[in-house]
Simulated assay, not measured.
Amino acid sequence: MSYSNNVPHKPELVMITGATGGFGSAFARRFAALGSKLVLVGRRTEKLNALRDELKTEVHTVELDIRDRKAIDQAFGSLPTEFAAVETLVNNAGLALGADPAQKSDPDDWETMIDTNDKGLVFATRALLPGMIERGRGHVINIGSTAGSYPYPGGHVYCASKAFVKQFSLALRADLQGTGVRVTNVEPGMCETDFSLVRFKGDTEKAGKVYANTTPLTADDVAEAVFWAATLPPHFNVNRVEIMPTTQAFGPLAIHRSQ
């Protein structure tokens, strides 16, 4: 899929967390094609370096676990001068783990999801907000999910974590009124990446069933939504954008009937 780079606003410096995953690498390629400088944040050095070497733009890599608040503060507070004035933060790091009912789920998985999807996102945002406000411009783009609005069996903590992202984004937008800093929550539905493979801890059969006989979104589709919001004129804020594949929609509420 090819999109035009004739945009009304070019973000000069974009930071992407979870940069080596399906979404993150698609976002990086999309902004690199525009000529934006990038700060790529992730846990896997080899993948970060490979992505950096692929992209035809200036790139700084940061290896850290987004769950580590001290590491975020240290790394984001000591960026090289030419990469310090982050204009657009894409809070992409996140995951789902497991799909069992709550009563059968592993609390360690719950903790990982909350620490990554919520705590990591807010700490990364907090680390960069003062600089954005001081410069009078900036954009925080959070990657939420339709799961934050529409719960489903086995979603429990993942759905709740994405509902948190939605409400945090809206409340942050209220806090930042008048600062020149924009906030957007991008909420994708079914999208085929390594998401389900991570969720089912490498079980390819289970992951494959999620997308069987349907046409889900791709990482590039989601990247286009992020790119669109980021490249609108600075006076134009997209609060939320919810996207789904055409093959996905809403269903009736479940009702259990006794025999």
Score class of each variant (00 low, 15 high):
Gly131Ile: 07
Asn117His: 10
Leu89Ala: 10
Lys166Leu: 14
Asp115Trp: 13
Gly189Lys: 04
Val186Leu: 07
Gly155Phe: 07
Tyr158Asn: 02
Val165Leu: 09
Phe164Cys: 08
Glu192Gln: 13
Ala124Val: 06
Leu170Pro: 05
Asp175Cys: 09
Ile143Leu: 13
Lys119Tyr: 12
Gly155Val: 06
Lys162Thr: 06
Val198Arg: 10
Leu176Trp: 03
Ala171Arg: 14
Ser161Phe: 03
Gln177Met: 13
Leu121Val: 08
Gly120Pro: 03
Val157Lys: 01
Gly136Val: 12
Val140Pro: 00
Asp175Leu: 04
Glu187Leu: 08
Asp118Tyr: 12
Met190Leu: 15
Pro101Asn: 10
His156Ala: 15
Pro130Cys: 09
Gly138Ala: 05
Leu97Thr: 07
Gln103Arg: 15
Asn185Thr: 12
Asp115Asn: 15
Ile141Gly: 00
Gln103Ile: 15
Gly136Ala: 11
Asp118Asn: 14
Thr179Asn: 10
Glu87Tyr: 07
Leu89Tyr: 01
Arg182Lys: 14
Thr179Tyr: 07
Gly148Pro: 01
Met132Leu: 10
Ser105Tyr: 09
Ile141Tyr: 00
Gly155Lys: 04
Arg137Leu: 13
Val165Gln: 02
Lys119Ala: 11
Tyr152Thr: 12
Gly148Asn: 03
Glu134Phe: 10
Ala171Glu: 14
Val140Trp: 00
Tyr158Lys: 07
Gly136Gln: 10
Met132Tyr: 02
Asn142Lys: 08
Cys191Tyr: 02
Asp194Pro: 05
Asp108Cys: 11
Leu170His: 14
Ser149Pro: 06
Leu121Glu: 03
Val165His: 01
Ala127Gln: 04
Arg173Asp: 06
Leu128Ile: 04
Cys159Val: 05
Ile114Asn: 02
Arg182Cys: 03
Arg137Tyr: 15
Ile143Tyr: 02
Lys162Ile: 05
Gln167Val: 14
Asn91Ile: 05
Leu129Tyr: 02
Val181Cys: 03
Ser169Asn: 05
Arg137His: 15
Asn185Trp: 00
Asp100Tyr: 12
Gly180Trp: 09
Arg135Trp: 11
Leu197Lys: 07
Lys166Gln: 13
Lys166His: 14
Arg126Ile: 00
Gly154His: 08
Glu87Gln: 12
Arg126Asp: 00
Glu87Met: 07
Leu197Phe: 11
Thr88Tyr: 04
Glu111Ala: 14
Ser149Tyr: 14
Asp115His: 15
Gly155Thr: 09
Thr112Asn: 14
Ala147Lys: 03
Asp118Lys: 11
Leu95Pro: 03
Phe195Lys: 01
Leu176Arg: 02
Gly189Arg: 02
Ala124Cys: 11
Thr193Met: 07
Thr116Ser: 07
Thr179Trp: 06
Arg126Ser: 00
Ala174Arg: 13
Ser145Gln: 06
Met113Val: 08
Ala160Val: 13
Val198Ala: 13
Cys191Asn: 08
Gly154Pro: 01
Leu121Cys: 07
Asp100Ala: 15
Ser161Trp: 02
Asn117Arg: 05
Asn117Ser: 06
Gly138Ile: 04
Tyr152Leu: 12
Ser149Asn: 14
Val186Gly: 00
Val186Arg: 00
Ile141Glu: 00
Ala160Lys: 05
Val165Ile: 13
Phe164His: 10
Ala93Gln: 05
Ala93Glu: 01
